[in-house]
C-alpha cells in the first residue's frame, strides 16, 4: 500500500508544481505553459488509446479539430456563449469518435493506422471544402469580447493560465483514476494480449470502443480549450501533422504512463522553442529526435524512469 501513497503524492506534487510555476516563471513561460497544459490534454487522450489500449491511431487530429471547430463555429457563427459552445464541441467530438470507433475498430494493426489516417484526412479536406465557414488554412479568430466565462476574461494571461490548469487537472485526474479501475486494467490486458483478455471473459470490443471514445473526447476537450483560450481555429490543426504530434509527444514522454504525455509535450515544445532560437531548421531537430528516440529510448522518458528507478510509476 506504500506504492499507493507514492502515486497520490506524485499526482498532488505534479498539480501543485504546475500552480507554483505560475508564480515563479516569467510571463513568456507562463504563456508557453498554458499552451503545453492544453496540448498535454490532447497527448493524454492519445495516450489512453495508444499507451494503455495499444491502438496506434494516425488520425487524432480529427478529434482535436472536431473540438476546435465545434467550439469555434458555435461561438463564431452561431454566437453561443462559452459554456454551451463547449458542450456542443464535446457532443460533436463524441459523435465523431463513436462513428470512427464503430468503423475503424473493425480493423487492427497497420490497417487501423491507415483507416484512421484516411478518416482524418477526409475530415481535413472537409474543413477545406467548407472554407466559407471554416476559413480553411487561414482560419478565423474568435473575438476577445466573446471569450468570457462567469465574467472572467479568458484572454487575460493569468486567467488563461488557470483555465488551462483546470482543464489539465481535470483530465489528468480522470486518467489517473481511469487507469486504476478494473476497466483501465483491462485495457492494459488488451494491449498485452487481446485474445487472452477475451478468454478471461472481457468484452474486448466494447472496451476498445469506450477507450477510443474517451480518447477522442479528451482530444476534443483539448481542441475546444485551445480554440477558446488562444482564440483561433484553423484547418492546419486538422492536418496530418497534428495526428503525428500527439504520437510524438507520447513516445517522447513515455507511452502507458500517466505522466508521460505532460513530459513529452513540454519537452517537444521547448525543443522546438529553444532550437528555433538557434536555427530555423527546427523540424530537422524534431525529426532527428524522433528517429533517435525510436532507436534508443523505445519506452520514452517516463518509461525509462519507470524501468530503471521507480517501477511503481503510474
Amino acid at each position: 500500500m506504500r506504492q499507493n501513497s507514492n502515486v497520490v503524492a506524485l499526482h498532488a506534487g505534479i498539480l501543485a508544481s504546475l500552480l507554483i510555476l505560475f508564480f515563479i516563471t516569467s510571463a513568456y513561460h507562463n504563456g508557453n505553459l498554458a499552451r503545453i497544459m492544453v496540448l498535454a490534454v490532447f497527448a493524454m487522450g492519445y495516450n489512453f488509446l495508444f499507451g494503455y489500449t495499444g491502438l496506434l491511431s494516425l488520425g487524432h487530429a480529427l478529434f482535436f479539430s472536431a473540438g476546435m471547430y465545434g467550439l469555434g463555429i458555435s461561438m463564431h457563427h452561431l454566437e453561443l456563449s462559452v459554456l454551451p459552445a463547449f458542450a456542443v464541441a464535446l457532443l460533436f467530438t463524441a459523435m465523431v469518435s463513436a462513428a470512427i470507433g464503430f468503423l475503424a475498430l473493425r480493423t487492427t494493426g497497420v490497417a487501423f493506422m491507415i483507416v484512421t489516417l484516411m478518416f482524418a484526412q477526409a475530415g481535413y479536406l472537409t474543413i477545406l471544402l467548407f472554407g466559407k465557414y471554416t476559413r480553411g488554412d487561414e482560419g478565423f479568430v474568435i473575438q476577445q469580447a466573446e471569450r468570457t466565462l462567469f465574467g472572467l476574461d479568458l484572454t487575460d494571461p493569468s486567467i488563461r493560465y488557470f483555465a488551462a490548469f483546470a482543464l489539465f487537472a481535470a483530465s489528468y485526474l480522470f486518467i489517473a483514476w481511469a487507469v486504476r479501475t478494473s476497466f483501465g486494467r483491462c485495457l492494459v490486458a488488451i494491449r498485452e494480449n487481446e485474445a487472452r483478455a477475451r478468454m478471461l471473459g472481457y468484452d474486448t470490443a466494447r472496451h476498445k470502443f469506450l477507450a477510443l471514445l474517451a480518447s477522442g473526447v479528451l482530444s476534443g476537450v483539448s481542441g475546444a480549450g485551445y480554440a477558446l483560450l488562444f482564440g483561433y481555429a484553423g484547418a492546419t490543426f486538422a492536418s496530418v501533422q497534428y495526428s503525428i504530434l500527439p504520437l510524438l509527444w507520447v513516445l517522447l514522454g513515455g507511452s502507458g504512463t500517466t505522466l508521460g504525455p505532460l513530459i513529452g509535450t513540454a519537452f517537444a515544445f521547448y525543443l522546438v522553442d529553444i532550437s528555433s532560437e538557434f536555427t530555423s531548421a527546427y523540424l530537422l531537430v524534431v525529426g532527428a529526435a524522433i528517429v533517435f528516440l525510436t532507436l534508443f529510448f523505445p519506452q520514452g522518458l517516463a518509461g525509462e524512469i519507470r524501468r530503471r528507478i521507480a517501477p511503481w510509476l503510474p
Binding site: 479501475t181 478494473s182 486494467r185 483491462c186 490486458a189 478471461l200 471473459g201
Partner: peptide, 10 residues
Amino acid sequence: ALGVRRIHGS
C-alpha cells in the same frame, strides 16, 4: 487479478 476483477469489480 484480471480474471478476478471481471467478477468482483473494484
